[in-house]
Design a protein around this nucleic acid. Structure first.
Lengths: 145, 145
DNA sequence: TAAAATTAAGTTGCGAACAATTTTATTAAA
DNA sequence: TTTAATAAAATTGTTCGCAACTTAATTTTA
């Protein structure tokens, strides 16, 4: 008896939908990010720092699911741009404390248009966005074991 | 009267959920992709070529939403790995025809485990996967105008 | 048909993303 | 307390992803 292969086409691939959607949102955000001279992952670092004021490389890595190989050079660029300050924790010299500057804080209001552009572009209600957000988070959680 | 700011935290950001989920799926796929000596976007190129046998750089770009700046070097690496052949279209010398090799075809069955790993890891039914796939595609479509 | 516009790939340059490794600091164990 | 193990960042190297630009071929239009 023949084995049914069930090869998936590109459009059957949930992974591709998510990967393409992520990049589509970045394209939508780009003009707003350009205006603020930010990249998308830099914007995410600021979202964390607007909430917590300061953090460590390790904590940023846990929140954003990025490692020091990605964060270290990015944080150096953001420091050079005046958005944050990096300093050693005197209690534990292995740790780098990342603290937002006034200049970094000043971008928070200007950045409101970024997530708003996604709402505007999709016309989704807050409830619809939250429902999809929950579904995607649930998937992530399962994938992360 | 005060203006309510409603700054979003990281977890409220649908864009972040999708971006993080996309990378979580890549982490899940990595061991299977490593086994086949493929990167994720290379796998996607093969998914297209398994379906269509051959394509052009332009068509691959439309299907995968990638530009020639990404595709040209990637396709050259895949050609060097023996997975596909690149040749000029004699009818229009601007066009590059990308055709899968027998070696590239031989990976199709071995790659079945890749999308399967996502099903296994999430325990989602085909119906649940399809529903989420549709929701994400709908979002992408809206974002792409 | 000659010039202008358009199109398809390719090139260059930069910033992620991440694996693998190294460096330095702290903690645990012998 | 010296050594071993662990931990946090940093470094190195490869591959995307994409903006901006270039090259070469084709099509349009003047």
């Amino acid at each position: 008896m023949e084995q049914e292969q069930n090869f998936l086409t590109l459009n059957d691939h949930l992974c591709f939908s998510i990967y393409a959607c992520s990049r589509a949102i970045l394209r939508l955000y780009r003009p707003y990010l350009d205006e603020l001279k930010l990249t998308y992952p830099q914007y995410l670092v600021l979202v964390v720092l607007w909430e917590y004021e300061q953090s460590t490389v390790k904590q940023l890595g846990e929140l954003l699911e990025l490692d020091s190989g990605t964060l270290t050079p990015m944080l150096k660029r953001m420091e050079a741009a005046g958005l944050l300050k990096r300093s050693r924790d005197t209690k534990d010299e292995r740790v780098i404390i990342v603290k937002i500057t006034d200049e970094g804080k000043s971008l928070q209001e200007k950045a409101l248009c970024i997530p708003q552009s996604l709402m505007d572009s999709t016309g989704m209600t807050t409830e619809e966005v939250n429902a999809l957000n929950s579904a995607v988070k649930k998937l992530s959680k399962l994938v992360n074991e």
